[in-house]
Amino acid sequence: MHDSRKDTVIEDSYISVGDDVIAIKGGWDQYGAVYGRPSKNILI
């Protein structure tokens, strides 16, 4: 599992629950901060 994502497209998705959401992760806990790799260039 990756903690960040780059150059990503999310399309043709149908999400149907009480609180639809797409959450973009940018690193996990202190490890993400040390690694310094944010999520970027994401098209929804």
Results as ranks from 00 to 15, higher is better:
residue 21 V to M: 10
residue 27 G to H: 04
residue 1 M to P: 07
residue 8 T to G: 01
residue 17 V to T: 08
residue 38 P to D: 08
residue 30 Q to K: 15
residue 5 R to P: 00
residue 2 H to R: 13
residue 24 I to F: 10
residue 15 I to N: 09
residue 18 G to D: 06
residue 39 S to N: 03
residue 23 A to S: 01
residue 30 Q to C: 09
residue 24 I to D: 02
residue 20 D to P: 15
residue 1 M to G: 10
residue 12 D to N: 11
residue 21 V to T: 11
residue 33 A to D: 14
residue 23 A to F: 04
residue 2 H to W: 07
residue 41 N to P: 02
residue 30 Q to D: 15
residue 44 I to K: 02
residue 36 G to P: 00
residue 18 G to K: 08
residue 8 T to F: 06
residue 17 V to F: 04
residue 5 R to D: 00
residue 9 V to E: 15
residue 16 S to C: 07
residue 2 H to N: 14
residue 22 I to L: 15
residue 22 I to N: 12
residue 39 S to A: 12
residue 31 Y to W: 08
residue 25 K to Q: 05
residue 15 I to S: 11
residue 15 I to L: 09
residue 30 Q to T: 15
residue 40 K to H: 13
residue 12 D to C: 10
residue 39 S to D: 06
residue 32 G to D: 12
residue 10 I to D: 04
residue 10 I to C: 05
residue 33 A to R: 15
residue 30 Q to P: 02
residue 39 S to I: 02
residue 29 D to R: 13
residue 13 S to H: 06
residue 21 V to P: 05
residue 8 T to P: 01
residue 21 V to L: 11
residue 33 A to L: 14
residue 41 N to M: 04
residue 13 S to K: 06
residue 10 I to S: 02
residue 2 H to Q: 14
residue 1 M to W: 12
residue 16 S to W: 01
residue 2 H to V: 13
residue 6 K to V: 09
residue 30 Q to G: 12
residue 9 V to W: 13
residue 36 G to W: 03
residue 16 S to E: 11
residue 20 D to M: 02
residue 26 G to N: 06
residue 20 D to G: 02
residue 30 Q to A: 14
residue 13 S to A: 08
residue 17 V to P: 01
residue 41 N to G: 02
residue 31 Y to P: 01
residue 15 I to A: 05
residue 38 P to T: 10
residue 7 D to Y: 05
residue 2 H to F: 11
residue 25 K to Y: 08
residue 39 S to Q: 04
residue 29 D to S: 14
residue 26 G to P: 01
residue 14 Y to W: 00
residue 8 T to A: 06
residue 32 G to K: 10
residue 32 G to F: 03
residue 9 V to F: 14
residue 21 V to Y: 10
residue 13 S to P: 00
residue 44 I to C: 13
residue 13 S to V: 09
residue 41 N to K: 04
residue 22 I to A: 14
residue 36 G to M: 03
residue 35 Y to M: 00
residue 19 D to Q: 10
residue 38 P to R: 06
residue 8 T to K: 07
residue 24 I to M: 07
residue 4 S to E: 06
residue 5 R to M: 07
residue 7 D to N: 12
residue 21 V to W: 10
residue 23 A to H: 00
residue 31 Y to E: 07
residue 36 G to R: 01
residue 35 Y to W: 00
residue 10 I to H: 03
residue 14 Y to S: 05
residue 8 T to L: 12
residue 24 I to S: 06
residue 9 V to H: 14
residue 36 G to S: 06
residue 21 V to K: 14
residue 11 E to Y: 11
residue 36 G to C: 01
residue 24 I to C: 03
residue 26 G to W: 04
residue 11 E to G: 03
residue 7 D to S: 07
residue 16 S to G: 09
residue 6 K to Q: 09
residue 21 V to C: 09
residue 42 I to S: 09
residue 34 V to C: 03
residue 7 D to H: 05
residue 29 D to V: 12
residue 22 I to K: 09
